[in-house]
Amino acid sequence: MTFNTWLKTITFYEILVGMKATMSHMLHYRPVTEQYPHEKRTLPDNYRGMLALLRYDDGTEKCVGCDLCEAACPSRVIRVVSAEVPGEPTKRYSKEYYMDMTRCLFCGLCVDACPVDALGMTREFEWSVYDKRQLHLNKEQLLAIGDRSFPVREKQLELQHPNVAFFNVAFKHLPQKPG
């Protein structure tokens, strides 16, 4: 132990250096904090937020009740109850559609899996609630999220996706646009 290190030890030199560092940060006060509720940072384009069900621009739901999203979900968030469109035995739609958002980890696999692009990830993230049962979303709520997050829809569903023609042989008896 040289004299120098000894001197540093007994004078707590390193500790003092550290304290000087903290003090200098305090004196040169440049906070990096963003006052979040008051000022919000811009989200990146590929932000994966709340899930939503989408519609065509004529108001028909895109979902065809194929259950692929349910199969793809790693957290078992999604539950789909599909049914035939009344009177059109070849056509199906999701009669009920539930998402338990308390479990969702926003991986986006369901969106990838959807053959008809009926699911989308919005940029909503402020979903804190007092009752976690409120986060068990049904079809109407999900559609509402989709409506408000993607107000501009694609024009023609026929042109939208090659698969659509395969699944939806005819469009006459689709469920009507609500209200």
Binding site: T22, M23, H25, M26, Y29, R30, P31, V32, T33, Q35
Partner: peptide, 13 residues
């Protein structure tokens, strides 16, 4: 507050 200042934060606001 002081901890915040020293850590380039704002502390309770």
């Amino acid at each position: 507050k002081v901890l915040g200042w020293m850590q380039d934060r704002m502390g309770p606001m």
